[in-house]
Design a protein around this nucleic acid. Structure first.
Lengths: 331, 331
DNA sequence: CTGAAAGCGCTTACAG
DNA sequence: CTGAAAGCGCTTACAG
């Protein structure tokens, strides 16, 4: 592996000239040719460390993800990657396996590596997050959760849940189970539930019962049968598509036909929900878009531009076949 | 952001002493205490570039993935990440969006960044891959595809397909459609088909017809109805779970009941196949294991240890409900 | 347009 | 155990 000094010697010029060649400084055509030739012959590759050591910054954006095996993560990463490439930035992905401790660690490690900025796909924002983000001198964008003190890109969980709730009521459902997640997760656990509640409050005589589960399909599989048995709702609104997929399977295993015997909805709009049978009605979020927005924001921050604290990503209610149309008079 | 020189000055020692403190060299308890104190006060963070510039190597392993939104990729990454963390290596993920040109580029970029090794989740290995991998002086492990000249971790596609083929025959199927992918993909396009063919050849009077589609669910959705209509098989063996999911949906949309009217199998063992209705019979590969194996291999190579050119990852036929048991006499 | 020199922040022999 | 010095490969004023 040869260095700029080798190239200079072979080409018979000074190191600085080679450096200038590399960085688009002004050089005569003659020396340009000479250097070009040597470059090709040697297959020279600049040492990124030496470059960064001088330049004091990199074109790398660190992305911290809670998990890799998630549709939402994958799509968001694709959006980030796409946009970053267009701006000549690279992305460095760091996985934390849903461990908040590792999230903090990752922020520190990325800082050491002098990334230009950090995008955090968040699940829960703790005091320690705020603290450390203030300490490091690097811009940070949070995706999926919001916090007054941080820049964030968030899905419109509240409105999406509200719209979905209204749709469900329009279909005549009046005895509904809402299967949510822990309120530690503000976006999924709180906002979606609140939006849904608002829709429910706008109508009289609708019975709703709230249940809680984890993000795991397997847990929904276990919880749903008892909900069906004890509460006997005409529909289960699930806080994520994965929970809905578990509910769908649980219902089938208990001999129920969807949507005739039970209606089910999700949140997310994962590709596979379209392939379920019946297709799942769900509130679709545009993860890839949100990823692009996050990338756009971080690049702006890195360049010292101003951006608004919070950006909302859009959603769409996708109506498929998993919700039955009930005749209200029959109830 | 302060440097080793700042720390040294504040603590009243030499830079080299601080460096020694950082790297576990021998120092007296007294100076240790002093430095420790200053470290805490300043919140010192070493500059990774300067470290790497001297040390001439990093603890980073570059991972090149063809796509991010794939179950197989995600699981493999998890396995790699897990193992690498245990060995104090970091992973740097580079996505190519199924663009072979970008794959070559990524190898070059990672080389410039002086990664210690590269793991390539491969789809197709071209001459240019071989060429460039020979050029760079960095160990490379290929996952998912094999090549005589490269180190690889491969799934046992051939045996898996053979076993699955035998199972299908045991269930009495004698008119089978095999829905595969392009033969450019040796593992999925060739090996699986070959293994399946071998099983078919061991029995007489079985009619098999081979079809081809892409990896996309949407394409399977289009192709499958015409296969059903024109060929009327009792079963469709799909080369991936995604294709099988598309087939399942297509069958439903055409009013068929699975497995009574049509049996379907896949390859992969994606988590969601268990949640389909009916559960999909499939050849499960252990992606996370394969990821760990790849990480293990690359660490060995980086440390100059010998490893075998090719390592096989295991598989398991998962029998669920998507294959009907036929009475052969009835045929 | 070109070159010599200083310096980025660290590590590592080499003396003491 | 500790310090002074050289050097990793590059970039960037500063002269010429």
């Amino acid at each position: 592996m040869n260095t700029i000094a080798d190239i200079a010697k072979i080409a018979g010029v000074a190191k600085s000239t080679v450096s200038r060649y590399l960085n688009g400084g002004s050089i005569s055509d003659k020396t340009k040719k000479k250097i070009e030739k040597v470059m090709e012959e040697t297959g020279y590759m600049p040492n990124t460390f030496a470059q960064s050591l001088k330049a004091k910054k990199t074109n790398i954006i660190g992305i911290i993800v809670p998990r890799l095996d998630s549709y939402a993560t994958a799509r968001t990463l694709i959006g980030i990657d796409e946009f970053l490439r267009e701006c000549n930035y690279q992305m460095f992905v760091s996985n934390t396996s849903l461990d908040l401790e590792r999230e903090i660690e990752s922020i520190l490690t990325l800082t050491k590596q002098k990334v230009a900025g950090i995008i955090l796909l968040a699940t829960e924002i703790t005091e320690r997050h705020i603290e450390i983000i203030k300490t490091i001198q690097i811009p940070v964008i949070v995706v999926g959760q919001e916090h007054q003190q941080l820049y964030s890109i968030v899905h419109n969980d509240y409105e999406a849940a509200y719209e979905l709730g209204k749709y469900v009521l329009e279909q005549g459902h009046r005895k509904i189970a809402y299967l949510g997640v822990s309120e530690k997760d503000i976006a999924v656990g709180v906002k979606r539930k609140e939006g849904f509640k608002k829709a429910m409050q706008e109508i009289k005589g609708c019975e709703v019962k709230y249940f809680e589960t984890s993000f795991k399909i397997a847990e929904a599989l276990i919880k749903v049968p008892s909900i069906i048995k004890e509460y006997q709702p005409s529909m289960i609104v699930c806080a994520t598509d994965n929970i809905a997929i578990g509910a769908l399977k649980a219902a089938y295993m208990n001999g129920l036909t969807i949507p005739k015997d039970l209606s089910i909805t999700g949140f997310g709009g994962y590709e596979v929900t379209e392939m379920m049978n019946p297709g799942l009605t769900t509130a679709k979020f545009f993860y890839q878009d949100a990823g692009r927005m996050a990338a756009n924001s971080i690049v702006k921050l890195v360049n010292g531009e101003k951006i608004s604290k919070k950006t909302l990503s859009k959603f769409k209610i996708i109506i498929r076949e998993s919700v039955d149309k009930l005749n209200i008079n029959q109830l």
